[in-house]
Amino acid sequence: METPEQIKLRLETAVPGAKIEILPNDCPAGERSLLVDTAHVLAVAKFLRDDTQLRLDFCSNVTGVDWPEAEIAEKIKVKQVGDGVEKEVEELKKNVRPGFLEVVYHLYSMELKHGPVVLRQRTANRDAKAPVVSLTLVWRGCEFQEREVFDLFGIRLEGHPDLRRILMWDGFKGFPMRKDYVPPDDFEYEPTPHDKVLAEARKHYSPEVKT
């Protein structure tokens, strides 16, 4: 199968204007992924599905990933001129990476029996309204999985025919798979050996008890 670089090259000619980035993967056996901008992802997906060399007709896995705002310490080499000699000094630079949500698609080909190609798209921020584009119209198999991504991560997938909660109930507030989700503390009050559970349950119920 073609390498991500080759796919990227062909994509850029086939879908003019598409911004495609190859993301590294440090895991030796893992696959590098293609990050596609949301404006062109539908065209890219259609190309990947219909291209005779790729024929990625099977979208195996769709999932979300939550990347909250994080500080990334980076070592950069800075040239310093001191005492007339140029020296390279390593400096620790801290960058703040803005938070975003990501949808990952694992694509395979049933016809040509190869894969995977990993496709990613990202939201601009972690707001529940920031959209990405649904690929259900390209691969029907995304339907339930994208609903799950919407349900658990709160990623809005534009163009999905039936976007509503799937695993949680309709009136549920919050997105459980996000990293900053606070789980409920209204446990059934029962003595467990774990003081933490007990304390949380007490904290939850005690205001009621007082009033």
Partner: peptide, 20 residues
């Protein structure tokens, strides 16, 4: 494990079972 990602899948009796 070192930072990175992997997708492993097998043919389970019900279909493709994968872990990402």
């Amino acid at each position: 494990p070192k930072a990175g990602e992997a997708y492993g899948r097998i043919e389970a009796p019900k279909g493709e079972l994968g872990f990402y």
